[in-house]
Amino acid sequence: MSIERAEPPAPQGDYVPAVIHGGLIFSAGMTPRRNGVLTVTGTVGEQVDLATARAAATLAASNALAAVRSVLPPEAGGLRCLQMTVYIACAPGFTAASAVADGASEAIAAELGAGALPARSAIGVAALPSGAPVEVQLVAATL
């Protein structure tokens, strides 16, 4: 299990990337940004295909993990992701939200191990900040 500290994406508004309280860490919603720039925009099922949305979810989840790690105390023995919410900006009638969210789960498994997968929700929405196709929010606990 990796607990290395990577820099989380810079906030795009008036908030912090993550907050720790009582051993629980809550990330802000993270979009698929690299160096502050969205890698893809649009609505899944219209401008964005399933494979692209899934890859965007992978990047967004990696950003959420970076945010969580940024507030992890040095004395912590690691972290456990407890819950993940994946929001998908999708076209009416789009029903593959879980397949998009699988990209986010892949990021968690790749970075923390397959046994570290959290409980997960995949929620279709009309729009997300800056036109992002996905946004991922994590709740984790220190070990």
Rank of each mutant, 00 (worst) to 15 (best):
A97M: 04
S2I: 04
L112N: 07
T142G: 03
A76W: 07
A51W: 04
A96Y: 06
P133C: 07
P133K: 06
V68C: 14
V37N: 08
A57S: 12
A99M: 04
V134I: 12
E7K: 14
A61N: 03
R69Y: 08
N63C: 06
Q83G: 02
H21E: 13
I88H: 11
V16M: 03
A10F: 01
T52A: 11
T95I: 02
A101N: 10
L24A: 13
V100D: 08
C90F: 00
L82M: 06
E75K: 05
A107D: 07
T39N: 05
S70Y: 07
G115Q: 11
R54V: 00
Q83P: 00
R5L: 14
I25G: 03
P74S: 12
G124V: 02
A127K: 09
P92L: 04
G78Q: 13
C90G: 03
D102F: 03
L82E: 14
Q83K: 06
I25C: 02
Q47N: 05
Q83H: 15
V139I: 15
L143Q: 06
L138W: 05
E111N: 13
G77I: 01
P129C: 01
F94P: 03
T43A: 04
Y87C: 05
T58P: 00
T52F: 01
A101R: 09
E46Q: 14
V71N: 08
G115W: 00
L143I: 13
N63S: 07
I108W: 01
G42A: 09
G124Y: 05
G36K: 07
D14W: 00
A114V: 10
M1V: 13
A116I: 00
I123Q: 13
G77C: 04
V19Q: 11
A56R: 05
T52V: 15
A76H: 09
A28L: 07
T43C: 07
E75R: 13
C90W: 01
V44K: 10
S98H: 13
L79I: 15
A18G: 11
A101I: 05
A132W: 08
P118N: 12
S98R: 13
G124W: 02
D14A: 15
C90A: 15
T85H: 03
